[in-house]
Design a protein around this nucleic acid. Sequence first.
DNA 1: ACCCAGGGTCATA
DNA 2: TATGACCATGGG
Length: 225
Amino acid sequence: MNPADRLLTVFRELDEMHAWRQWHWDRDTDPFEVIVGSILVQNTQWTNAEAAIEQLKAAGALSVDTMAPLEADALAELVRPSGQFRQKAKKLRAFLDLVEEQGSLRDLLWLPTPDLRSALLGTWGIGEETADAIIAYAAHQPAFVIDAYTRRLFARLGIGPVGSTSYAVWQRFFTETLPIDGELWGRFHALIVLHCKFLCRKAAPNCAECTLKTCCPASTAALKA
DNA sequence: ACCCAGGGTCATA
DNA sequence: TATGACCATGGG
C-alpha cells in the first residue's frame, strides 16, 4: 500500500473506533476557550488543563475582556491546577497582548494562515504545536497538529519519519501525503488524541504485537468501557 | 516515593 | 541543529 492509502486506512479505523467519543474542541467550542486550553495543556494531562479552565470559567475570566484586567498573581492562581502555572499565566498574558496588537480576537483569527502562524509563533509561549492547534481548532483554518501522541502512535505503527524528532518533518509527512483538506486534518488529529487517551497507555510503545486495534490487552478492555 | 503528561524557552556546544 | 535544565500540578 502507498503511504496515502496507509494513512487513510488508519484514519478510517480510528474513525470507526472513536467516532462516538466526544472531542473537546468541536466546531462550536468558543475559540478563546480553545486557545486557553491549547496553552494550558502544554506538557500536561488534559484533565488538569480542564480543571484550570473550569476555574477560569467559574471566576468569569474565560474571555479576552475579562481575563485582560487580571493581575499576574490572580491569573496564575486560577490556572494553578494545570501545573507550571506562573509560566502559563505569562503565556496567556503574551497572547492577550497579541490580541491587543491585532485589534481583536476575530481580526487575529481571520488573518491568512501563514500570517496567523507567524504571528502566533512570534508570541512568547506559543510554539509550533500550540500554533497549529490554534489555527486548526480556534481559527478553523487548515493545519495538521503534531504532538507526542501522533509521534508515539505512528512510530509504533511504523508509519512516517519514525526516526525524526523534527516537528516540520512529521508535519510535512502528513500534509504532503494526505489530501489537502483541513477538515480531514483536524479530524484526524482529534481521532489520534482520542485513541491515545484511551489506548496508548505507557505499556503500548513496548508492545511488540501492537496494531491499531489491538493495543495491549488492558487498554483494549478499557476501550469497551 | 517515584514517574510523567497533547510544550516552550533559554543556555550551551 | 541538537541536547539538557527548567517550569510544577495531579494521577498512576
